[in-house]
Amino acid sequence: IRNLCQQFPHGITDQVIQNDMPHLEPQQRAMAINKLLSLGQLDLLRNSSGLLYRMKDAQSTSKMKGSDNQEKLVYQIIEDAGNKIWSRDIRFKSNLPLTEINKILKNLESKKLIKAVKSVAASKKKVYMLYNLQPDRSVTGGAWYSDQDFESEFVEVLNQQCFKFLQSKAEAARDSKQSPMVQRNSSFATSHEVWKYICELGISKLQVDLSMDDIETILNTLIYDGKVEMTVIAAKEGTVGSVDGQMKLYRGVNPVIQPTGLVRTPCGLCPVFDDCHEGGEISPSNCIYMTEWLDF
C-alpha cells in the first residue's frame, strides 16, 4: 500500500487500493491503513468522492519528529486550514483544553513550525499559520497597512501625488496649442505611467512594493473625489500596462461648478441650522456666525 501511495502523490481512494490489490481482504486493508496512519506516514483526507489516502511528504514528517501526538494533531489542523486559523477554531477542532493548546502552540512556535499573525480585520484575534507561508492580503490588508494600522496619511500623500501628476499632464496638454482631440488624448495617462512615476518618486517609505492594482485603487479614490476621470481603451496584447487587452486611462479634470451659492453663506454650513427660528434662542438676528461673516 505504501508503494501505491507513493505512486500517486495526490492521494488515492479506497477503490484504487481495492483494484490494485484484489487479494487483500477489506479487513486486512483496513488494518494496514490504520497502521500507516498511526505511524504518521499516511494522511486521511476527505473529498467529494469519498475518503482519500495520501502519503505524507517526508519533509514534514521529519519536522514533526520529537513531538507528541497532540502537537501533531494541532499542526495538522493548522496545515489543513492552509491560509490561517484562529486559535479558537483550533480548540474546537482538536477538542483539547485551552491551556493545553496554548502550550502546544507555544512549543510549535518555538520550533518555527508555525507563526502567529495579527489580522487587520480584528486586532484582538490571534491567527496562526504555517511558518513558511506568506500572510494573505485579507490578513495584512495589503500595502495600505503597517502593523495592522491603516496608513491614511500614506494614502493621502499618494492621492495628492497622483493628482499632481495627472494635473501637470493635463496642463501641459492644454498649453501645447494643438487640435482639441490631440490635446485631450495627450492629457490621458495610463495607470502604468502613474505607477512608474510614483515608484520613481520613492514615496513608498516602508519598502512597500506598490502594485498596479494598488495605484489603481488610489486613482479610483481620485475619481470619487471628482478630480479625475477614467476611460478604458483597447490595447494591443503585450503593451506595457495593459490588462486583458484593456488599458485604463486617467486624466485630471476641472470641476463643473464653483462652490454653490448656498454654502457660501453661513447658513449653508451652520451646525444649528435646524434649530434656528425667528424669535427663538437661535435666530438670524442674533446669529454669531452671521455677525462674524458680516464683519469679515
Binding site: Y224, D225, G226, P255, V256, I257, T260, V263, G268
Partner: peptide, 25 residues
C-alpha cells in the same frame, strides 16, 4: 448633472472632501 454637482459641493463644503468622496462614491 449640475444639480448633482451642487449636491456634491454642498457635502464637500459642509463635511469636508472625504465625506464628499464617500458621497460621490
Amino acid at each position: 448633472n449640475l444639480a448633482r454637482a451642487t449636491l456634491e459641493s454642498v457635502v464637500q463644503e459642509r463635511f469636508g472632501s472625504r465625506s464628499a468622496r464617500i458621497f460621490r462614491l
